[in-house]
Design a protein around this nucleic acid. Structure first.
Length: 852
RNA sequence: GCCGAUGUGGCGAAAUGGCAGACGCAAGGGACUUAAAAUCCCUUUCCGCGAAAGUGGAGUGUGGGUUCGAGUCCCACCAUCGGCACCA
């Protein structure tokens, strides 16, 4: 190749990068072999390395998406060089709202735009030389894929949670009369998050501060008939099994908070004069029962319909409830500062002391947590305190105060007072005593509550998986497996209907399943496809099962899962739930899907702000690759800093990495006057000097350890040190450069592959290691070669460095100490002082401590 | 308010309790060149003293503590970011 052709380039990446990408693709270099396939090696360790698959948006990828993908690619290539069987697939989470909304705007069918976007995403990923096994590519919108999404839905529909075995079991093991009441997938008519702007309902997890997570539209609560998943049945296992996972503590904590387990008690209060009517409250502070001075019901509490109220109160109540209904969730929380409520003019009886306390209705009590009713202890609860002050209700302390505490305090270690049964006890013992009293008297029991709600699983959309469900005479019925997949109808107009009715209602022919039965009109949420895609990757072409049994037992769980924090409680919780259900039903062999999770940090724009189209600071990989090549982009993404950190993009940083790769190129090749590249005449098959051998072996060690610790930035630093070291070495030992290429090949695979071929052509010894860098093996180091003959000790007096001392590494500690004490730069600092002690850290330093 | 993460040069960062700032960027100076690009070399935490080689001191968000020795461990606080938020 002529250098004029690439005269602005430091090395001809635009020639060899596409060439290697094409070669890898064509030769199937990164195919992972399944058990039973020819070439499958049962002795090789399996390793499943997974990226969170992307939603193929119309904008293409930006450089921030590539951080995680590059990291997993380096690991995959590294483990392959170590002889492991690496599963590293990629696919598309392609159902979803943006495609549908774009379709509505432009009239293009979402299938068309999705197909186009996927093509673009795939091209972009291939431009980076990622070593995905593309034969395993999956697409959630492909009928061959969502057939199995629907199939899994049917397994969950035909299952229930058996509270005796604490397991999910086929519905056939249910002995009761109402299987529809216990199914894991069930229909409920409950208040849901309805988003008028999106024309659909949303899961709790998709609503932030009363706004939709997608688009930020306001969300209101209204009762609708919807499909739900009984995820709360597994709340305890979802919580408990976090312990065994190698996930960032912060993500585990996020899930724990979301599940929100709390242990407390239900206490039964009966109404004065209507003893047959009772109110059950939930409290975590049973020890403060004596301090309850009133009781509060949520405005939606069903008991309110049954109570005998004076006409005035009934009217006031209705007004108040209407007022609450009109408020969105956002308003209800915004107005948190001032408490509102009305008194019912009724009293109930505190079971512990038979005192009469008034019943109030207030919207600071939520119907969807606990029992929708609380006992208010204003002395020791901020909210109750505020409410009591607003309405001049009595406040009676039942925990001993100290000078540092003022009302309301909720001390958990305080001593109970004014509470005859438990006076003097601490909170823990007091709780136990109160609860056992309540249980003994039939007035309450211990109880566990979760913040986690059941998962709202249906959406009023077109571009999603239809449910494999039909309705007949008001009852739902599952389709049989042989009727899968249920494909969405071809429709011209899939705009929201403007009512709660899903767009599929407009496909009149499709809707009619039979003379008597109609199809379910809702579709599944985007999470459905991503709940199990990691299983399909193991066996993507299987026509008989969602994943083959033997294959699943081989690949098991994902060993390393890399993605962003934004999925901390959505995808990661939902997928764990499906996985556990499949586990209980015997379809998978592990209780958890993702053993190790790593969150890559965000790449910010060059301005330090989050990359976004509106800020105009989005960096596209295409332009970077055009100027500097894929290897430079890959290497820079990893060199920027720790994988988990967010950091701003810097084009001069890419420049620096590009220079480094140019140095590697010139270390190995030189250009003839005829503009031909050939192996540098300096490179010779000759032994390393002791010092060189130390550099080579310490580099192997550092890079190996750093890759395993995911510290790619320091691994790259070490390569730079290595290159700086050998740049001036004449002659250059072949072993050094060949090792460098092996170490570099997971990071900058194109360049390493290209240079390896040059070396292999010239030197048979290189050829013998592998005709390609990617076909050689990962180098190993020898600890013996890392030792120095001489060691430089730092000599400190009272912790301050006074001199350095170079001694043979065999020098004994006593000799080192003596040498330090008698050193001419040290001696003046010791004059007229008494030495208290001398600390010698072997191989490192001497600290002389003087008496003060 | 609660929970979690992070705080080190001009910037990205590095440092099993043992030489703070490796590696890279940027900046400045030099070499090569008619010139530029590219490449190579040197300097660059701050404050003193020195013509210079040097040399003295301070320094990892703030204040305490443990230790011969702390960026690293402990306590308190501050700031930034992320999550949750009337969850009884």
């Amino acid at each position: 190749m002529s250098s004029t052709e690439h005269n602005s380039k430091r090395y001809p990446f635009c020639d060899f990068e596409p060439r290697w990408q094409e070669y890898w693709l064509r030769s199937g270099a990164f195919r992972a072999k399944n058990p039973g396939e020819s070439g499958f090696d049962p002795s090789a360790k399996k390793r499943y390395i997974l990226d969170m698959f992307p939603y193929p948006s119309g904008n293409g990828l930006h450089v921030g998406h590539l951080v995680g993908y590059t990291a997993t690619d380096i690991l995959s290539r590294y483990y392959r060089l170590r002889g492991e069987n690496v599963l590293h697939p990629m696919g598309w989470d392609a159902f979803g709202l943006p495609a549908e909304q774009y379709a509505i705007k432009t009239g293009q069918h979402p299938r068309v735009t999705t197909e186009k976007n996927i093509t673009r995403f795939r091209e972009q990923l291939q431009l980076l030389g990622f070593s995905y096994d593309w034969e395993r590519e999956v697409n959630t919108t492909d009928p061959h894929y969502f057939r199995w999404t629907q199939w899994i839905f049917l397994q969950l529909y035909h299952a229930w949670y058996n509270p005796v075995t604490c397991k999910i079991e086929p519905i056939s093991s249910y002995q009761g009369k109402e299987p529809d009441h216990v199914r894991l997938a069930y229909v409920a008519n409950t208040p849901v998050n309805w988003c008028p702007a999106l024309g659909t309902v949303l899961a709790n997890e998709e609503v932030l501060n009363g706004k939709s997570e997608v688009g930020g539209f306001s969300v209101e609560r209204r009762p609708m008939r919807q499909w739900m998943f009984r995820i709360t049945a597994l709340a305890d296992r979802l919580l408990h099994d976090l312990e065994g996972l190698d996930w960032p503590e912060s993500i585990k904590q996020l899930q724990r908070n979301w599940i929100g387990r709390s242990q407390g008690a239900e206490v039964i209060f009966s109404l004065q004069n209507q003893p047959e009517k009772t109110i059950t409250v939930y409290t975590t502070r049973a020890d403060t029962l004596y301090g309850a001075t009133y009781l509060v019901l949520a405005p939606e509490h069903p008991l309110l319909e049954e109570l005998d109220l004076s006409p005035d109160v009934r009217k006031a109540l209705n007004d108040y409830r209407n007022g609450c209904n009109a408020k969105s969730d956002l308003e209800r929380t915004d107005l948190a500062k001032t408490k509102t409520g009305i008194s019912l003019g009724l009293d109930c009886i505190n079971p512990i002391n038979k005192e009469l306390i008034p019943i109030w209705v207030a919207d600071y009590v939520l119907m969807n947590y606990g029992t929708g009713a609380i006992m208010a202890v204003p002395a020791h609860d901020e909210r109750d305190y505020e409410f009591a002050r607003t309405f001049s209700l009595p406040i009676s302390p039942v925990i001993k105060t100290t000078p540092s505490l003022s009302l309301p305090f909720n001390a958990t270690d305080g001593e109970a007072i004014n509470s005859p049964l438990i006076n003097g006890l601490n909170a823990i013992d007091a709780k136990i005593k109160i609860i056992s009293w309540l249980e003994a008297n039939g007035m309450g029991r211990t109880c566990i509550q979760y913040k986690l709600r059941d998962w709202l699983f249906s959406r009023q959309r077109y571009w999603g998986e239809p449910f494999p469900i039909i309705w007949e005479k008001g009852a739902h019925r599952a389709l049989s497996e042989s009727e899968l997949p249920v494909e969405p109808p071809e429709m011209e107009d899939f705009k929201p209907t403007g009512t709660a009715e899903p767009p599929l209602a407009k496909a009149h022919e499709w809707v009619r399943y039979s003379h008597q039965a109609t199809r379910e009109l809702n579709t599944m949420p985007q999470w459905a496809g991503s709940c199990w895609y990691y299983l399909r990757f193991c066996d993507p072409k299987n026509q008989e099962a969602f994943v083959g049994k033997e294959v699943q037992e081989y690949w098991r769980e994902v060993d390393l899962y890399v993605g962003g924090t934004e999925h901390a409680v959505l995808h990661l919780l939902y997928a764990r739930f499906w996985h556990k259900a499949l586990f209980d039903l015997g379809h998978v062999c592990t209780a958890e899907p993702f053993q190790r999770l790593v969150n890559q940090g965000m790449i910010l724009g060059p301005d330090g702000q989050k990359m976004s189209k509106s800020r105009g600071n989005v960096i596209s990989p295409d332009e970077v690759i055009r100027q500097y090549g894929a290897d430079a982009l890959r290497l820079f993404e990893m060199f920027m800093g720790p994988l988990e950190h967010s950091k701003p993009w810097s084009i001069t940083g890419v420049e620096g990495i590009y220079r480094f790769l140019g140095r590697v190129w010139r270390l190995i090749l030189s250009e003839t006057p005829e503009n031909i590249f050939q192996v540098n005449a300096n490179i010779m098959e000759q032994p390393l000097t002791g010092a060189q051998r130390r550099v080579v072996h310490s580099t192997i060690k550092k890079i190996t350890c750093d890759i395993e610790a995911l510290s790619f930035n320091t691994a790259i630093s070490q390569m730079m040190i290595f290159v700086n070291e050998f740049a001036t070495a004449t002659p250059t030992p072949l072993e050094a450069v060949q090792t460098l290429l092996q170490l570099l090949s997971p990071f900058a695979p194109h360049l390493a592959e290209e240079l390896w071929v040059y070396l292999a052509e010239k030197f048979p010894s290189v050829r013998a290691l592998g005709s390609l860098a990617s076909e050689s093996s990962w180098p190993t180091w020898n600890e013996e070669y890392l030792l120095f003959e001489e060691i430089t000790y730092v000599v400190q007096v009272n912790g301050k460095i006074r001199t350095r001392l170079t001694l043979p590494s065999t020098t004994s500690q006593e000799k080192v100490e003596q040498a330090a004490l008698h050193n001419p730069s040290v001696a003046p600092h010791l004059e007229h002082k008494k030495i208290q002690k001398v600390i010698v850290v072997p191989g490192r330093l001497v600290n002389i401590v003087l008496k003060s």
